[in-house]
């Protein structure tokens, strides 16, 4: 289970982030902050337990509403040390846990979180499909899985900005050719919003709702019927799809 190709890749990613930890905020901070802030603003309208996968140096942590209970994980101990320093500095009592984990093998029970957010993570992991499966697993039915990622696009301003960023992408193991199909792999996750983020629309936020399912027992041989409830439990406040204009960047 452990060992093999994926853990070799994990080690390479961890090494890259160890090298970049001291200057990450300086180099990448302004570029990715827009996206983080927009995602956190959205999460702040929700309730309950939040898991931030790939918390990095923890730039988003001070911005969560203080009654949300946050669990924060990352694969890089150097990044987590910085996140911890930030938590102490701001006295963030709502950050309940910080742990070192691999996003493709989460150490949480199924359905533990009301919101699961992974920002700038999916393009650096060896197996995005497996990470999506884990994000789905730890999200409670009716809860949300939120992804911010770069997805490949050739034309126009984004194409230009992408080429400009290629050296940075290489430094952190981002895949410039990463396709949206890599994250659209879970039937239990229904896409409810797709929003291009500033600057240049380089990054996209995808928001999924974890389907509420029941009727597990169906007779063998018969097509499995899964009833999907359009409205989530009271208090979760989900009102249906809100697809924003993807051209607005």
């Amino acid at each position: 289970m452990s060992g093999g190709l994926s853990s070799i890749d994990s080690i390479a990613v961890r090494r890259a982030y160890a090298r970049w930890a001291p200057m990450y905020d300086l180099v990448f901070g302004s570029l990715v902050d827009f996206g983080r802030r927009q995602a956190v603003d959205h999460i702040n309208a929700r309730h309950g337990r939040v898991l931030e996968v790939g918390v990095g140096t923890g730039v988003s942590l001070p911005h969560y509403r203080r009654d949300l209970k946050i669990s924060a994980i990352d694969l890089s101990p150097e990044m987590l040390a910085r996140a911890r320093a930030r938590i102490a500095k701001h006295g963030l009592e709502n950050i309940e846990e910080v742990a070192e984990m691999d996003a493709s093998d989460l150490a949480f029970e199924a359905g533990r979180f009301d919101v699961v957010v992974a920002m700038y993570v999916l393009t650096v992991v060896p197996d995005p499909g497996r990470v999506m499966a884990e994000l789905e697993r730890v999200c409670a039915p009716g809860g949300e899985v939120i992804i911010i990622s770069h997805f490949a696009q050739d034309e126009g301003l984004r194409g230009w900005a992408e080429r400009k960023l290629a050296p940075l992408s290489a430094a952190l193991g981002w895949r410039p050719d990463f396709s949206r199909d890599n994250v659209m792999t879970r039937s239990g996750l229904r896409l409810v919003e797709e929003r291009r983020m500033k600057p240049f629309g380089l990054f996209t936020m995808l928001r999924f709702v974890r389907e509420v399912e029941w009727a597990e027992a169906s007779p063998p041989g018969e097509e499995r019927r899964v009833h999907k409830r359009r409205e989530a439990a009271p208090g979760r406040g989900y009102n249906g799809a809100t697809l924003s204009d993807p051209a607005a960047g």
Partner: peptide, 19 residues
């Protein structure tokens, strides 16, 4: 179940089989 003991270092659980 996995016959593994995951270390906690400086209060941070290291939930990686290779560690």
């Amino acid at each position: 179940a996995a016959r593994l003991a995951y270390p906690i270092r400086d209060g941070i659980p290291i939930m990686l089989p290779e560690e």
